[in-house]
Amino acid sequence: MIATIAATSAAALLVTPAVAALGHRALRRSRNASLMKITTRNGIDEQGFVRIGGIEQWISIRGEDRTNPVVLELHGGPGASTAIFGPRTRSWEKHFTIVRWDMRGTLKTLGRSGPEGAGEMTFDRVHRDAIEVTDHIRTRLAVDKVVLLAHSYGSAFGLRLARAFPERYSAYVGTDQNIHDAGRDDSVHQALLARLRAGGKRKELAAVEALHPDERRWTPRERAMHAKLLATSDPLTLGTMKKTVMGSLWLSPLHSLRELRLFLKGMAVSEPVAQATAGCDDWADGTGFELPFFVFQGEKDVLTSPALARRFFDDVQAPVKGFALIEDCSHFAAFRRPERFLELLLTHVRPLVAREPAGTTSA
């Protein structure tokens, strides 16, 4: 979903005048590296490759106290690693052990294997990888269950994992929550048409109007064009992509200049993964979950509709559930306002998974 606009933003970074840009980058990366240091006695800071699904895949485990609840993130894209946001989410690691995984075809995992060695790039293959990663983390950290935190396209995996394996996960948290309904809801598409008309974007409007009414029949190129226009037609989303996403990639102490290009390449390599969900129906798959279920969504998200996420949430049956909108945010709400997201985790999720007195959830 974000590959095309990310490529545009990152390309601008890569052609920025070298001396000034690289000097500023080195200084900021050094500061971020200092920020990322974990020095607590019972902390953990591990990054490396683990054999998952027959290939070496990159996994990071970080936190200030190993007794904290473990959170496994599923990144979006597909192919858009969340490891780039480490400095922005450093405060999360005081309260949780955060596990970040570059899926096959993504960033550091892609750098290790190359496109030819990425293996089967399908939804089912990555889904099986996610189960294997979950079990690896449970064994490595000696925990029965982990919190499943799914971002954007990662939430397509997240819903299926949470529904099928409540014995592995202590809670589900979706953000930038994707809801697939076999194409019944076209509100995101209609809102795009309205923005293009209001902005006088005649060429872009004609291209969108020419698309087949059933988005399940769009080609990958048409889907990419639509996703680009969703983001570029909305100033809040475009600004977040440039500053929060590309800015984080540029200043990440964990990523080299070569890996800026790998970030883009990974989303291209991972495009086939998304094709499998074009006709999916999350309602038909089931709204019953045997674990606490939460959705924390950007209130102005133009890519993954808050209204559609709320409709699905309202139909969910779960032991505990909570829904919250993150103010002044479109997509990437958790990373645009990481302290607000942490507040929601501490209020609604951690008391349940850490066996502490539970706060009040919104419904």
Rank of each mutant, 00 (worst) to 15 (best):
A6V: 14
P17D: 02
V19W: 06
A20Y: 14
G23V: 10
S34E: 14
S34F: 15
M36H: 05
I38C: 00
T40M: 00
D45K: 04
G48H: 08
F49K: 02
G53H: 05
E56T: 14
I61Q: 06
R62T: 13
G63C: 01
G63I: 06
E73F: 15
G76A: 00
G76V: 10
P78L: 03
A80C: 05
F85Y: 10
G86W: 00
W92K: 07
K94L: 08
V99F: 07
G105M: 04
L107G: 01
L107Y: 08
K108E: 05
S113N: 15
G114A: 03
G114T: 14
G114P: 15
P115H: 10
P115G: 06
E116S: 14
M121P: 05
F123H: 03
R125L: 09
D135G: 11
D144A: 04
V146L: 00
V147C: 00
Y153Q: 07
G154A: 01
L161Q: 06
R163V: 04
R163D: 05
A164P: 14
P166R: 03
R168M: 08
Y169T: 11
Y169G: 02
G183R: 04
S187P: 14
V188A: 02
A198H: 13
A198D: 11
R202M: 12
K203C: 08
E204F: 08
V208M: 02
E209Q: 02
E209R: 03
L211T: 09
P213G: 08
D214C: 02
E215Y: 15
T219G: 03
A224M: 06
M225I: 06
M225Q: 01
H226L: 07
L229T: 11
L230D: 04
D234Q: 04
D234H: 11
G247I: 07
S252Y: 08
L254F: 12
A268N: 03
S270M: 01
A274F: 12
D285N: 15
T287V: 09
T287W: 04
L291I: 13
F294R: 03
F296T: 04
L303Y: 11
T304V: 05
S305L: 06
D314A: 09
V316K: 00
A318K: 06
V320K: 07
I326G: 04
E327R: 01
H331I: 09
H331M: 02
H331W: 09
F335R: 06
R336H: 13
R336E: 12
R337P: 13
E339Y: 13
L344C: 08
R350H: 11
R350D: 08
V353T: 10
T361P: 04
A363Q: 13
